[in-house]
Structures are given as structure tokens and as C-alpha cells.
């Protein structure tokens, strides 16, 4: 069990959570809660795998995943923004629909064999840095490197640019944004779509890079829901989301790898001699999510910050409210 290798793989699997979490941050910052991430990720994973299988080009797969998951997200946008229905129930239904769709359309894909994956490479010079180099810049998939670029850019976009300010305005005080001439409905549709595309990439990251293949519902194994939890922990901030995602990714890897060695810290490894203890290891990411939420909520209460003020509320023009 080599710590460097675990961290390296952890960064890769954390990239999945990173994309999903960043996408949800965009959506929630515009005031729409989309619980459909798990379903949209499955649609993305299924689409990217099947398109890559057909065309042989994984990049086409990624684009198709973004389009497909984005399309599914627009159902949620229509129901919550235009029809003003409850965002929680709509998100759940989108998650069911996405899961069901990917199971029906992905039938038989699990036995389809291997596809050409996205390229992996090391970055010259950066990979020479002790410790950081092997973990972050050696033999990672190209999507992992894209992830490094995405989260600071998203932070900059949301906090420092004009469209980013519009995004925050729509999520904090839609009536005021509307009075300033910002089209609340259009922006909410747009950012739900952005969130959908990110979920699609997250799905594609699984099926084309991190753990290639299509394993029906087990492809995501609840990572979409973990991402929803990470958004709260991240306090809707992409930088904190990155930290959370990579820590979680490393944790997931550690759980897989800890069962391998005979000795653990010089003692006989209980997970090796009784593999059934692995079931308790499997609980850890989910239990950890709950703990992270508890910590996050305490901090949010203390600082009185975090959630966009209009999160979860439909905006109806001319109606009094927020």
C-alpha cells in the first residue's frame, strides 16, 4: 500500500465529485436546488460510454454526455422555473428518470467490452516536484487536469465577473435582479443547464477515465448525492468544493486499498484477514458525508452565511416575497 499511489488515484476519483459539486454550485447559486445530479451523472456516464463505443472517439463521448445530461436538467428547469413546482420533488423525479433512462438505454452496455479512454499523461517539470508532482501531475487523465483549471476559473467567474454577479443576484434577491433588467428565468434555465453539463462530465469522468465501463446503478454508487452534500460543506464556494472533493476522493480510494496489505501499521490487517469487515469500510464515505454536513451546518450557523437566500424558492414576477 503506497500512500502516493492512493493519493494519486484519490485525486482522479475526486475529480468526479469536483465536477458534480461545481455544477451544483452554479445551479444553486442561481436559486435552483437540483437533486437530480445522481440521475444526470448516470445519464452522462451511460451516454459517454455508448457514444465512445460507437464512434471510438472519447471526446465525442464527453460532449454527448454534456448534451444528454444538460437536456435532462432542462426538464427540472421547466418544472421548477416555469411551472414553479417544488424543487425537492422535481429534483428527486429527475433523479429517478435519469436512473431509469440510463438503465433502459444502457442495457447490454456492461458486457460491451472496452472502449478507447481519454488520454492520460504526465506534465513535464510539474511532475518533478517532490510529493505534489507524483500525486497531482503524473499519469493523470486529461479530465483531472481540466479539473485543476475549472475550479479556480469558476471561483473567479462567480465572484469577480459581471455575469457571475448576475448569477449571485438571481440567487440572492431575484426581484431586485429583475428590476435591474436581468432576466431571472433565462439565467436560471442557463445555470440549471450548466449544472447538468457538469454532471454529464462527472459521469463521463467515471466511465471513460476513473473506473472505465458501465455498471448500471453501481457506476455512480451515490456519488451524485455525496456531491449535493459537498455543496453544503463547501458553502457554495468552488475553492472549498475542490478541497472537499479531493479529500473525499482520497478517502474512497483508501477504503478500496486498505483491504490489500497483510500488515497495517505493523499489525495484522483486520480487513485482510476478515474481508467482511469491508462492509463497515463501505459505510465510511456515507457516514463521513453526514459528519461533514454536521460540521458544515454548525459553521454555517455560526457565520450566518452560505446558502443563497432564494435557494429553493420559485420566482414569480410581481408577487411579493423575497
Amino acid at each position: 500500500m503506497d500512500l502516493i499511489i492512493i493519493l494519486q488515484a484519490g485525486v482522479a476519483s475526486g475529480t468526479v465529485l469536483l465536477f458534480a459539486t461545481i455544477g451544483e454550485i452554479f445551479t444553486e447559486r442561481s436559486g435552483v436546488l437540483n437533486l437530480g445530479i445522481e440521475g444526470m451523472m448516470l445519464v452522462g456516464a451511460m451516454t459517454s460510454f455508448s457514444i465512445t463505443l460507437k464512434t471510438g472517439n472519447p471526446w465525442l463521448g464527453v460532449v454527448a454526455a454534456m448534451a444528454a445530461a444538460g437536456l435532462i436538467s432542462q426538464i427540472h428547469a421547466f418544472i421548477t422555473v416555469t411551472l414553479q413546482a417544488d424543487q425537492v420533488v422535481s429534483g428527486l423525479s429527475v433523479s429517478f428518470l435519469g436512473t431509469g433512462l440510463s438503465l433502459v438505454l444502457g442495457e447490454g452496455l456492461s458486457k460491451a467490452g472496452t472502449v478507447s479512454l481519454l488520454p492520460s499523461f504526465s506534465i513535464p517539470y510539474l511532475s518533478q516536484i517532490p510529493l505534489l508532482g507524483p500525486v497531482f501531475f503524473t499519469k493523470q487523465s486529461v479530465l483531472v487536469y481540466i479539473g485543476y483549471l475549472v475550479f479556480p476559473l469558476c471561483w473567479y467567474f462567480i465572484n469577480k465577473t459581471r455575469p457571475g454577479m448576475h448569477l449571485r443576484a438571481v440567487g440572492e434577491y431575484p426581484a431586485a435582479a429583475d428590476a435591474l433588467g436581468i432576466n431571472v428565468y433565462r439565467l436560471r434555465y442557463l445555470y440549471v443547464f450548466v449544472g447538468g453539463m457538469f454532471s454529464g462530465v462527472a459521469g463521463a469522468t467515471i466511465s471513460l477515465a476513473v473506473s472505465p465501463g458501465w455498471f448500471s446503478e453501481l457506476t455512480t454508487a451515490g456519488q451524485g448525492w455525496i456531491a449535493v452534500g459537498l455543496v453544503i460543506f463547501a458553502q457554495w464556494n468552488p475553492l472549498r468544493a475542490a478541497v472537499g472533493s479531493y479529500v473525499f476522493g482520497a478517502l474512497r480510494r483508501l477504503i478500496l486499498d486498505i483491504q490489500g496489505p497483510l500488515l497495517l501499521f505493523g499489525l495484522p490487517n483486520p480487513f485482510y484477514y476478515n474481508p467482511y469487515y469491508g462492509f463497515f469500510l463501505q459505510m465510511i464515505p456515507y457516514a463521513f458525508t453526514i459528519i461533514v454536513l454536521i460540521l458544515g451546518s454548525r459553521e454555517a450557523m455560526r457565520k450566518r452565511m452560505g446558502a443563497p437566500a432564494a435557494l429553493g424558492l420559485p420566482y414569480i414576477r410581481g408577487q411579493r416575497g423575497l
Binding site: 421547466f78 418544472i79 420533488v89 422535481s90 428527486l92 429517478f96 428518470l97 431509469g100 438503465l103 433502459v104
Partner: peptide, 16 residues
Amino acid sequence: GIPKMIQGCILVCLIA
């Protein structure tokens, strides 16, 4: 996956 997919469709249409 068909039953799950139909359930999802029903819930989406119902909320809409």
C-alpha cells in the same frame, strides 16, 4: 430498467 424508467416518467409528469 423499464419499471424504474416508467416510475420516473410518472413522477415527472405528475409534478408538472
